[in-house]
Each structure stands twice: as C-alpha cells, then as structure tokens.
Amino acid sequence: MITQEQYRTRVKELLSSGTVKMVIGYKPGSTPDRRRPLFIRTAEEANRLVLDSACITNLSGYLVTEGLLSDEKKVAIFLRPEGIRSINILAAESQLNADQIIILGFDSTGSVVKTLDGTHAGDFSELLGSIKQNSPVKPSEVLFEQVEQMTPAERFAFWQEEFSRCIKCYACRQACPMCYCRRCIVDSNQPQWVNTSSHTLGNFEWNIVRAFHLAGRCVECGNCGRACPVNIPLRLINRRMAQEVIEAFDHFPGLNQTQEPVLASFKKDDSETFIL
C-alpha cells in the first residue's frame, strides 16, 4: 500500500507538471484478483490507480497504439521487469523512441510490491543483466519436461489435442506487446498463408507461425497465455524458443535498446551442425 501511495504521488507530479501527457497503469478489474489497464490524463484521476501483486499484465503493448507517441510528448507507464525488456525490444526494432517513455517500474514477490529505481529503459540495464544471469536456461516446469521427453509422435498428438481447442480468436496476438504488425500474416489473403477456419491443421500453422515470429523477441510476460480463452499452454512453446536462442546465440531479448534482433543478424561462425 505504501508503494501504491508513493506511485500515486509520483503520477500526480508527472501529470500536473506536464512532464507526461498520459499515464498507463492499473485499476480494479471485474473480480478482486483481476486488474484492468487504466489510462489517465489528469492529476485528479491518479487516485484511481491500483498497484499490487495482482497487476501482472504487461502494458507495454499500448505504447505502440497508432499515433500515441507521434506528437513526441512523453507517456509514463507502469512496468514489471518483463515490460521494461519489451520497451527495449520495441526501441531496438524502431517502434518507439524510448526517451518518450517514463517508466514507473515495480516488481513483486508474493504479495509484497517493491519499487524499481529508474525512469528510463536505460536505467535498468543492471537489473536486466542480473535477470539474465539468474534465469535458468532450462525451464523447470514439469509439463515442459514431460513434453520434452515424449517421442515426436506423442508430442504431435499432445499439441494436436491442445490446438484442436483453438478457435482462432487471435487473442494471443492482440495481447502480445510484440505483435504490432499493421497487417498480420494471418490477415493477408493473397497468398493465404494460414487457413482462416479453425480446424486443427490451420491451428497448427497459426501457432507455429506465432511462436516463430516471437522467437528471440518474447520476454515471457505471459500475456498470450492469460488471454487464451481455451488455455492452450502457449508459454511452453515460447519458453522453448527462448531456450533455443540463448543456447544457440546467447541472446536474451530486451537487455538494452541497441541489442540487434537475433533473427535479423548473424555471425559467420553460427552453428550449422544440422546442415548437410
């Protein structure tokens, strides 16, 4: 609660001094354990802000809303460390100017919310570096291990079962801060790369493409999995991709704004053991 008051005061200062034109934060949601995004433009509204351990959504995707940052004014946003990594990636991919983003950083352990020191994405590089050091390369989740140990045929059957529930609502795409393409590959129909109806075959294509486009860019904020109405464990695929890019290319996405996107760069001595 102290942290919440601290941040409300800070938001009031930012808005009343005219430093930022908008603050993106959280407000209570439909149930006690859910939070909704809140967009405020005046200092009076700051008391509507909520900040607690239930604020888990990565809000950074709202920053790439068309026209929001084109007036070169600043926007403040509440972000967890994953969110700060998203900002770095978006800046590295030239989607926004990180100087326009004032970060109200926070993190939580259990129900305790703690503040993160810094105002711009660049101020958090030490924190992000230590996250890279401390995150295990190999994921520790039981389900992940089970999937890894299956035979290819069993894995195919597992995903067939999961993807058969997909209704192609593209909520995973809408919720993802990294899915900012004006025209997504699934929306283009000449040629039609991904079948639009939600049969399992097309669902395979969609989920493979989604995961591939996020490879080396995903910060595992979990927005996609939480948005999925049929609870497909998308995090498993994202995690496998994260593991692959760190093992093969030592790439941990979102460390800083100058990090080259992993699939848009190369080294002459990249591994090629699989090439005949």
Binding site: F156, A215, M241
Partner: peptide, 25 residues
Amino acid sequence: THGNYHARRRWMVFRSLLDFIGIPP
C-alpha cells in the same frame, strides 16, 4: 553476400520449433 547466413539462423530456430511441436526434424 549474406542471405544464407540469415537463413541459417532462421532454420536453427525453426528446426527446434518443429521438433517441439512434434514434426520430426
């Protein structure tokens, strides 16, 4: 000059993705 270098990285990642989905590499 470097189209195949880019392709090589892409395949490396794509291969592991296919494997994880259950499409035999």
